[in-house]
């Protein structure tokens, strides 16, 4: 076999083979990840700073969706304040903005006191 052909075949088979083996191996390991949530070692890995991320856990999700103590009137005021703040920061007027939805997340540590 010509040398270049041999080199090409060795490189190609080696390369395609390794790429597939490595990625399939990762895929297998990753597919086991879905069981992690069931064994609930997640509390072990929760970061020291408690934050709510989408889909983090059922407990926090409940907290997000259940904010019944806030009345609708309060919400209207809050939306007005938020819109005004965003308008000021974007240097536009508040009638240029439209609030489609908003929700409260239980974020005790805000940007302001984070370091």
């Amino acid at each position: 076999m010509a040398e270049w052909l041999e080199e090409g075949l060795v490189g190609t088979i080696n390369g395609v083979g390794t790429v597939f083996i490595v990625l399939v191996l990762i895929a297998i390991v990753i597919s086991l990840f879905k069981y992690i949530n069931k064994i609930n070692i997640s509390s072990f890995f929760k970061p020291a700073v408690k934050k709510t991320l989408p889909g983090e856990g059922s407990q926090t999700n409940d907290a997000i969706h259940s904010t019944p103590e806030v009345s609708e009137e309060d919400d209207a005021q809050l939306i007005a304040v938020i819109v005004a703040a965003i308008a000021a920061s974007l240097e536009t007027s508040s009638d240029q903005l439209q609030v489609r939805s908003f929700r409260r997340i239980n974020q005790t540590n805000t940007l302001w006191n984070r370091r």
């Binding site: 490595v22 990762i26 992690i36 929760k46 989408p54 983090e56 856990g57």
Partner: peptide, 23 residues
């Protein structure tokens, strides 16, 4: 499906160990 925070943290660690051990 939604992906948990724990999975996201484990992913880079697992991939680093697996891939670099092989290559």
């Amino acid at each position: 499906r939604p992906v948990s925070h724990t999975e996201k943290i484990l992913f880079p660690i697992v991939v680093t160990i697996l891939v670099i051990l092989i290559l």
